[in-house]
């Protein structure tokens, strides 16, 4: 069945359609959570909470073409809130290793820099580069002109560069 049809059904209260949609995007959602929270357990908790929020709010979704972006935004908002709760919780190598990822220095720096960004910048970079959402779609779901999204994206990239330079600078002292 076409995604849009499934979304329409889910909005009308069809549970099967809803679950099928979550199934379709679960890996994207989970990886997004993991990139923010960097902890398997918390990412799973995020999956639970996002399923809950999506089910509760699906009636408010206005345009069925943007279901995926809508869903990922719920995840990003949730993760942003979680990060605030944790404040600047510093990751140690042990947790990183437990993810089964061997990280090089650049990637580690990049992740730290992402966490230092403001919420909107982090959201927009995640949508664009992590989930491959088109600028046009980001604009629609955020209800603003495409030009604005492009400006935000540029600001976000600039902010990211600054953070990376700071960190790089520190390392090379």
């Amino acid at each position: 069945m076409e995604t849009e049809q499934l979304v329409k059904k889910a909005i009308k209260g069809n549970d099967e359609a809803f679950l099928q949609l979550i199934q379709t995007y679960k890996v994207d959602l989970y990886k997004t959570a993991l990139s923010f929270l960097r902890n398997e357990e918390e990412a799973l908790e995020a999956m639970q909470e996002v399923t809950y929020r999506a089910y509760k709010n699906i009636k408010k979704l206005k345009n069925e073409f943007y279901f995926k972006t809508w869903l990922i935004r719920i995840m990003i908002n949730y993760c942003n809130d979680q990060l605030k709760l944790k404040k600047r919780f510093v990751m140690n190598d042990e947790i990183l290793n437990s993810l089964g990822v061997s990280e090089n220095h650049t990637q580690l720096e990049l992740k730290d820099a992402m966490l230092d960004l403001d919420d909107r910048s982090r959201e927009i970079l995640t949508l664009k580069y992590f989930n491959d959402v088109k600028i046009k779609d980001i604009a629609t779901i955020m209800q603003c002109p495409e030009g604005t999204v492009k400006t935000w994206l540029n600001k976000a990239l600039r902010a990211l560069r600054e953070k990376l330079d700071e960190k790089g600078g520190n390392l090379h002292v």
Binding site: L19, I22, Q23, V27, L44, M47, Q48, V50, Y52, Y55
Partner: peptide, 14 residues
């Protein structure tokens, strides 16, 4: 584990 998490979230809403 992901499916479990989805199911718990769904159950909570239900």
């Amino acid at each position: 584990s992901i499916d479990q998490a989805i199911l718990s979230g769904f159950q909570k809403a239900k």
